[in-house]
């Protein structure tokens, strides 16, 4: 069974600082769009608790963008990374509407679609993606995950209202309840 490289998001550590968003924009010189966004949800079990999740392309196991693109511009590499070939993109925006995670964005400067490519050029050099490198709290990391595990990955248990039918290749570390320690005696 093959293993794919995935983003691992620790809900306990994300503090909504958006450094990941900025680092990505800075690295790729993006203006007006973000490849990565930090979303905030209210926990379903505890309304007072707020969950911050840094999301970009989830490099799904069954990427909907691959079959929806009329130009067949999306490719999934052997290591699981979904990359977009912008040179043939005609900006039809079908992928933007179809992706349940809003990963592809329309870049008004190029009139083409743009999306997170897992910093493949850095990965190929043995480096970590720029967002992971700059995450100040260590909430974002990368790991190798077996495709069987991705297939059976239940994101609902992490209380995140995100779609599962494309089998997003991410690992979510669930928010833990805080512990209270009482002094003895």
């Amino acid at each position: 069974m093959t293993a794919h490289i995935v983003f691992s998001i620790d809900l306990n550590r994300c503090i909504n600082c958006k450094t990941c968003e900025m680092a990505c924009n800075d690295h790729y010189g993006l203006m007006g769009i973000h490849r990565r966004n930090v979303f905030t949800y209210e926990s379903e079990s505890d309304e007072k608790q707020r969950l911050h999740v840094s999301m970009s392309c989830n490099h799904c196991l069954n990427p909907v963008c691959v079959y929806i693109c009329p130009e067949n511009n999306f490719q999934k590499r052997g290591d699981g990374i979904v990359i977009h070939e912008p040179s043939r993109c005609k900006g039809c925006k079908l992928c933007i509407n179809a992706c349940p995670f809003h990963a592809p964005k329309f870049n008004p400067k190029t009139n083409r679609v743009d999306k997170c490519n897992f910093c493949v050029e850095r990965i190929d050099q043995g480096l970590r993606p720029i967002c992971v490198e700059n995450c100040t709290t260590g909430a974002l990391s990368i790991m190798m995950l077996d495709t069987n595990e991705i297939e059976s990955n239940s994101l609902k248990s992490a209380e995140l209202p995100i779609a599962g039918y494309t089998k997003p290749s991410i690992n979510i570390l669930k928010k833990q309840q805080g512990y209270t320690f009482f002094r003895e005696g």
Partner: peptide, 17 residues
């Protein structure tokens, strides 16, 4: 036949839904 990758994703979606 270069679009077989699309066909593969469609077959998987068809299976799932």
């Amino acid at each position: 036949s270069i679009n077989l990758n699309k066909s593969y994703q469609e077959a998987k979606i068809a299976l799932q839904f």
